[in-house]
Design a protein around this nucleic acid. Structure first.
Length: 279
DNA sequence: CTCCAGGCAGCCA
DNA sequence: TGGCTGCATGGA
């Protein structure tokens, strides 16, 4: 591996916690080996570790690190702007320094399509298998994320062999649509949140929740609030009227009303602290 | 073994 | 529009 660089975090880059950021379940391909996190960024194998304010990394540029981890974002200001709420405050304390990573749009979409109705360890296994089978080998034993064209032209049975189950045709179908429209992500990025979500939901396997995940994790639309079973539970138990009937959009709207324009970030901190939040 | 998971599409009223 | 149901799979 090429030589290691160092980036000292300061200003907007604080707070930042690499472990929490890569462990919280927003990304599925990073793996911690010893003290190093190893993963693939833009077809480059990278490794990175944090020691206090120092970020040591290899395999990519400082600009890419800053962009991927969104270190120019004033996270402290966002956290300070949250409403005075004890549950959210405890979640922020628990996951302090978590940053929403800027995922490539296609990788994010494909990942969350195969993430539906599954648990995180299983998702990681599936995505690893997809990369090993369909991704370009960029180094011995290291694979890029599969290109949409590759998946679109692969037999469903081959895709299913990566244990994606019934999601095989969703993944293949979305891969086909994406590969037929270069620049689809820029088109989405130019739209208002509601329009962007509606457009994303035209992809097979992309419903409200997956669309919100793509908008939050790839496009950094921080008003997007993915409501999975955990967030649904937390919102109903702690923020909504007991026994009330709430649709997905009503819960997300409530979250935006309570947490403000960075509700997506609040959601992510609550998700990261889900096992510490009592039912 | 049972339960459950970063839900979705396809129905039906 | 809103509620119900089947769905493949593996990790805990």
């Amino acid at each position: 591996m090429e030589h290691c660089r160092k980036l000292t975090l300061e200003g907007s880059a604080l707070p930042f916690d690499l472990d929490i950021t890569l462990r919280c379940g927003q990304v599925f391909r990073f793996e911690k080996i010893g003290r190093w996190w190893c993963g693939v960024l833009e077809n480059e194998v990278i490794r990175i570790r944090q020691e206090g304010r120092d970020l040591h990394f290899a395999g990519t540029t400082e600009d890419q690190i800053i962009r991927y981890f969104d270190l120019d974002l004033d996270l402290e200001g966002i956290l300070r702007g949250f409403p005075d709420d004890p549950l959210l405050a405890s979640a922020v304390r628990h996951a302090y320094g978590l940053r929403i990573v800027r995922q490539p749009a296609w990788e994010c979409a494909a990942s969350y399509i195969v993430a539906t109705f599954a648990n995180i360890p299983g998702i990681r296994t599936r995505i690893r298998l997809l990369c090993e089978r369909f991704g370009e080998e960029i180094r011995a034993g290291e694979f890029a994320f599969p290109k949409p064209g590759t998946l679109a032209s692969s037999p469903l049975c081959d895709i299913r062999s990566c244990r994606v189950g019934y999601r095989d045709r969703f993944l293949c179908g979305t891969a086909g649509m994406v590969s037929n429209e270069p620049g689809w992500d820029e088109r989405i990025a130019a739209l208002e949140y509601r329009d962007a979500r509606r457009e994303l939901m035209r992809f097979p396997g992309v419903g409200r929740k997956v669309a919100d995940c793509i908008l939050l994790f790839a496009f950094h639309r921080f008003e997007a609030v993915p409501v999975d079973v955990w967030i649904d539970r937390i919102m109903r138990t702690h923020y909504l009227e007991e026994g009330g009937r709430y649709s997905y959009d009503q819960i997300a709207d409530e979250a935006r009303a309570i947490f403000g324009p960075y509700a997506g970030y609040a959601q992510e901190y609550l998700f990261a602290a889900r096992n510490q939040i009592k039912k």
